[in-house]
Structure formats: C-alpha cells, structure tokens
C-alpha cells in the first residue's frame, strides 16, 4: 500500500463514527419517545454518512481495489481502531446520552482541528461534519443537563452513567502509532498535546 500511515490514520478517525453510529442504530424503534428515537437515528445517520466519506477516501488510497464496504465489514474485530468509549453497550437512555455527550465534545474539537489539515479531502469531510456534530452535542448536552437536574432517580442514573463512562475518556488522549510518522505532517491527528488543554477547552461545565 502506498500510504499505509494515512490509511491507518483515516481508519483511526472513521472507526469511532462507524461503531457509535451502529450502537445508536441498534436503538432504532426503541427510544423512550418518538422524538428521542428519531434523534438517535438521525445522529446515527450523520455518523455513518461521515464514515462513508472517510472509507471511500481510504479505499481510494489503498490501491487494492477495495470498496467502502470492504473496509466497513471485512475486517476482524481486533482490526478496528475505535476507542472503547463508543462501543460501550446501550443500557439506559441516560447512559446513551452520557456516552454521546462525552464523544460529541471530543469529536467536535477533533473536527475543528482536522478542518485545518493540509489534506484537502480530510479537511472537507471535517468541515461538513462540524455542522452536524455541533447539533449532536447540543442535543446530548441538553439531555445530560435535563436528566442530571431532573428527579432524584434521573440524577442518580445520570451520575452513575458518567461515573461508569469517565474512565473511557482517558483513551481519547492516547497517541496513535501513526502520529509519529513523517508522512502525516500537517495532517493533524486525533490526539491533543495535553489532556489539560482539552479539559480546559472542551469539558467545561454545561
């Protein structure tokens, strides 16, 4: 493969959206209300749409006659590069919204950096995605607040969800292997220089 580092780098970003999109897709028809059900599937659709753009690009540069579907479906489970946060199984609605919010904050910051990439295709996918992900974050953030401030039961469940999910946010700050490749200079990556920086910029009180 001509640019293996770039290929792996793209999958490192795209696999998160695929897996979270699939997790949300599992809830189609099972939301607590019609509005939240539609919201979950709409967010899923945006994420899988973004994944398609990334995979189409990855397939093109693979030079192996691959299609987007080959990349999505014809890999062993250990070959997916997503963070563990996005694959946490659906439990209750507060947990789903908590998982979504923690990812949305990270995702939006990532895309805001990625739109500055020298790689025109990645920058274009990021610019498109920013518009969609801003809306996701607004939705999930609203629910985290609403459930967190709601009844004693909703507060307890939301708190429990954040307690359970928080350890998985650590992985968002891990360097990916291809970060150190010269071939990717100027392409940015999913890692931020310091965790402190991201905490200051992203995970502010709602």
């Amino acid at each position: 493969m001509k640019s293996e580092h770039l290929y792996n780098y793209i999958l490192g970003i795209a696999d998160n959206s695929l897996i979270l999109g699939q997790r949300l897709g599992e809830l189609c028809g099972h939301g607590p209300s019609l509005e939240t059900d539609i919201a979950g599937t709409n967010i899923s659709l945006d994420l899988i749409g973004q994944t398609r753009s990334y995979y189409q690009y990855a397939a093109k540069i693979s030079g192996e006659n691959k299609t987007e579907d080959d990349i999505a479906f014809l890999r062993l489970e250990r070959h997916y590069k997503n963070v563990l946060l996005v694959e946490q199984p659906n439990t209750h609605f507060g947990f789903v919204m908590g998982r979504q919010y923690l990812f949305d904050v990270f995702h939006l910051l990532l895309l805001k950096e990625l739109q500055l990439s020298k790689d025109e295709t990645l920058a274009a996918i990021a610019k498109k995605g920013i518009k969609e992900v801003s809306y996701h974050k607004r939705f999930s953030g609203d629910w985290v607040k609403r459930l967190g401030d709601g009844t004693p039961e909703s507060t307890a469940k939301m708190q429990e969800a954040i307690d359970d999910l928080w350890p998985y946010t650590q992985e968002l700050f891990d360097m990916t292997d291809c970060r150190h490749s010269n071939g990717l200079r100027g392409r940015r990556c999913r890692c931020f220089k310091t965790k402190k920086g991201l905490l200051q910029r992203g995970y502010r009180p709602l």
Binding site: L34, E35, I38, A39, N42, I43, D46, E132, Y135, F139
Partner: peptide
C-alpha cells in the same frame, strides 16, 4: 417539538395558533 425531524435536515415544530404540527428546514 423535536430538534430532529423526519429527515436530518428538518426539525419538528407545532403552531400554537392553528395547532398544526409542521417541519422546519434547519
């Protein structure tokens, strides 16, 4: 009524005057 409507591009609204629900193109 709902930030997400029947498609990704729309949100669901309701009119208090005529009581009809409708889609808003975001």
């Amino acid at each position: 009524v709902s930030q997400f409507g029947s498609t990704a591009c729309k949100a669901l609204f309701k009119c208090e005057a005529c009581l009809e629900p409708f889609d808003y193109f975001k």
